[in-house]
Structure formats: structure tokens, C-alpha cells
Design a protein around this nucleic acid. Sequence first.
DNA 1: CTCGGCGTTCAACATATGTTGAAGTCAAGC
DNA 2: GCTTGACTTCAACATATGTTGAACGCCGAG
Lengths: 122, 122
Amino acid sequence: MTVEAPATYTLTVGEVAAASGVATSAVRFYERHGVVHAERTSGDQRRFDDSAACRIRVAKVAQRVGLTVREIADIFDELPRDPQPQDWGRVAETLIREAEERTAALRAHLDAMRSGSRLCEL
Amino acid sequence: MTVEAPATYTLTVGEVAAASGVATSAVRFYERHGVVHAERTSGDQRRFDDSAACRIRVAKVAQRVGLTVREIADIFDELPRDPQPQDWGRVAETLIREAEERTAALRAHLDAMRSGSRLCEL
DNA sequence: CTCGGCGTTCAACATATGTTGAAGTCAAGC
DNA sequence: GCTTGACTTCAACATATGTTGAACGCCGAG
């Protein structure tokens, strides 16, 4: 049977911030919006698992192609607990597909414009 | 010699809004940020040329791939007065290149992640 | 067990991208 | 030349994406 790889929530907000290259305020922002998840210590401090910094780095790159934090969180939400490589593969495909669809829409619009022989009513 | 095709500023803000599918407030916003340009009547009303609605439609699609209004205005600023088809062609290429570079960055990041065999520290 | 470095929340500020409403002005058709 | 619908500006509001600072709490090393 498959071995369990339970997520262990050990990283502080500062550690995740350092590992992902954003401010601690941004890490808290991403958690509030569901890009990363955390447990709390008995003293109410956040503890993140090892995927947090990676998720944030992916989110930053995805934001550059026009995805909102909400959209990125929704895509990450498709991940099961203890995601396997193929789960991340699906997320990666979804992100790329979104980016390519938007680029294709831009290209289609610009192509239509050019072939219209009335480029921006020149 | 080449025939002049002087831009004629005749369209009101409402006409541009209707033609581009955005609110008049958005048309004014885009003008303030240099996406479109207008002259003023003696009574201080805006008059846009025929390219305004097209520029705004292009801007909306470009925003979807992560370009800011500022970046879009900067790209449009490369257009000469009375732009020719090849001028719009260069703008189109610049927009597409930006979108593709960002998508490539996303893909590269995700590929690096997958090949790292430590996908988001799974 | 204490202390200093992190952590917490919350409110305010900041920038980008707009919308809405008030108060007043313009211009086009009758 | 009047009227009225569309225009003007400006301030306030709204959402997304954060940052900063104050006031206070937690926790691990000594």
C-alpha cells in the first residue's frame, strides 16, 4: 500500500517569507486568500508546511500573466491533501492553459484587427 | 508622395464608450493614463479620433495577460502620428511578445519545479 | 524563568483600476 | 435661442494587492 506523506506544519511566517522572497505581510495576505494554508500553534502563531514558499513563488509568476490571487487560490484548491507529482502536474497544466488562452485571445484580437484592413480605424 | 491621413478628432466620450464597450468613466480613465488621446472643443469637451475605441478594446485584452494600463500606454506611445499598418504591426508584436515572455517564464518556473523532483517540497 | 526576537491583530496608508453622484456647462435639434 | 441630453470636474466609494506601524503576545536559548 502507499506510504503516507503527511504534511507537517512547522515553518513560521518569517521562514516562508524568506524562502519565497516576499514580505511577511504578503505571506499573511496569501494565506487569508487561500493561496497557502497554515495551522496555528496553541499560542495562535501560524505554522506552514514545506509547500508554502513554492506555492507563493508560483503565485507570483502566475500573477504576471494576469491571474488574480483568487483565481490562483482556486486552482491550488484542486490539489488533494498530500498531493502527488501528477497532482502538481495538473495544476501546472491548468496555469499554463490559462496563460495560453489569454495570449491566444490577444493574438486573435490583434490578428482580426490587422486583417480587417481598418487597423484601429487608421 | 504619400497621402496625408490626418487624424480627425470628432468622437465624443459617449460614442467611444459605446464603440469600445466600456463606461464613459473608463474612457476618461484611459485618456488620463495615455491609452487614448483627445482634443478639446472650445467648451472643453473631449473629442477622440477613430482609433480610440480600438485602442481601448486592445487594452482590455492586453490587461487580461497581465499588462498594466501604464505598460499598454507606453507601448501605444511608440506609434507615430497617423500610424501606418506596419506601425500597428509592431505594436501588436510587442504586445504578443510580452504575453509570450510572461507565459514562458511561468512555464519555465513550473518545469523547473517538476524536474526538481521536489515539487513544492511535496 | 526571563528576555529578546518573532509572532499576532488591526487600522491606516499606498497604488492600480475603475464607478457613482453632485453640481454645473455645452451643444445640437427644434 | 431654448431646451435637454450629454458633457465637465471633483470627491467619495469600491475592489485588488499589498506595506507599515502600534500595541501586544509567544517561545526558545541561556
